[in-house]
């Protein structure tokens, strides 16, 4: 697989003016979430570095989706959800007073479990994020749409029908469109909530390839219940169990040399 000539597309980020921050690029600190009376997350803490893929694995209902939804604060849309603890991106809390929810969500893009394109044209789907943020001049929007679609490996399949409805695409194409839509607003972090759970194996393969290529430019958190997928795409893996973080390590370590009994049982299929 040839990697996209990203450097030509995205200018290499200028070297940081200040020295690399002391903490992790993205850090979750003692994060707890309650839905009404029930607690879904218990004091979860971990960190992840820039341009890596972190896979969150675990059985259904273990809180992994809740966790990543907290990272761009979309969890707050769920009535009754209460968040304690903190999430830092480049040492800045996303829950800080000054943080603007709109900018945060722009910076931390999200791809959902089921492809959820808007019932608009392919073009309008990708352009949506730009337009709502006030970028409306045609040539820029055109450029970004094309760039995002290429970046999500969908361009060649749709370039001749950008005006047709996004709902006419196949499930896998729709999911890549959703990725393109998220990329178009130029995020730093990409959250993916089981992006392949509704897709067939071929489409899944394409998305996985895409994830691996995207990590050059983005910091990715991907939730999956598919351990093979975690093993294939991620640099680090974290196992969640009943709302708690059980083990977090380099992916090879987790899969070849798990420290915890639960992890071992889970990855060998004895539980979960």
């Amino acid at each position: 697989m040839s990697v996209l000539p990203k450097q030509a597309v995205k200018a290499p980020s200028p070297p940081p003016a200040r020295p690399a921050p002391p903490g992790h690029y993205l850090e979750v600190k003692n994060l707890s979430v309650h839905y009404g009376e029930t607690q879904a997350l218990f004091e979860v803490s971990f960190g992840t570095e820039k341009n890596t893929v972190l896979a969150l694995i675990g059985p259904s209902g273990c809180g992994k989706s809740t966790l990543i939804k907290a990272v761009n604060r979309i969890l707050e849309l769920t009535p009754g959800a209460r968040i304690d603890g903190d999430v830092l991106i480049e040492d800045e809390s996303i829950f800080g007073q000054k943080v603007d929810l709109i900018s945060l969500r722009q910076r931390v893009g999200m791809v959902f479990q089921r492809p959820n394109p808007f019932p608009k044209s392919i073009y309008d789907n990708v352009a949506y994020g730009l337009r709502i943020h006030g970028v409306k001049d045609r040539s820029t929007v055109d450029d970004v749409v094309e760039w995002a679609l290429k970046h999500s490996a969908l361009w060649d399949e749709v370039k001749d029908r950008l005006r047709t409805s996004a709902l006419e695409l196949s499930g896998g194409q729709q999911q890549r469109l959703c990725i393109a839509r998220a990329l178009a607003v130029q995020p730093d972090v990409l959250l993916m909530d089981e992006p392949c759970s509704a897709l067939d194996p071929i489409a899944t393969g394409k998305i996985e390839e895409l994830i691996m290529s995207l990590k050059q430019d983005y910091t990715i958190l991907v939730v999956t219940h598919n351990m093979q997928q975690a093993a294939r795409v991620s640099d680090h893996t974290a196992l969640m169990w009943l709302g708690k973080l059980i083990e977090h390590n380099r992916t090879e370590e987790v899969f070849t040399n798990p420290k915890e009994k639960i992890t071992e049982d889970y990855i060998t299929g004895r539980s979960g």
Binding site: S13, V144, Q186
Partner: peptide, 9 residues
């Protein structure tokens, strides 16, 4: 992209 990012952010 940096320019677009600047305009968006």
């Amino acid at each position: 992209p940096a320019e677009v990012q600047r305009r968006l952010r």
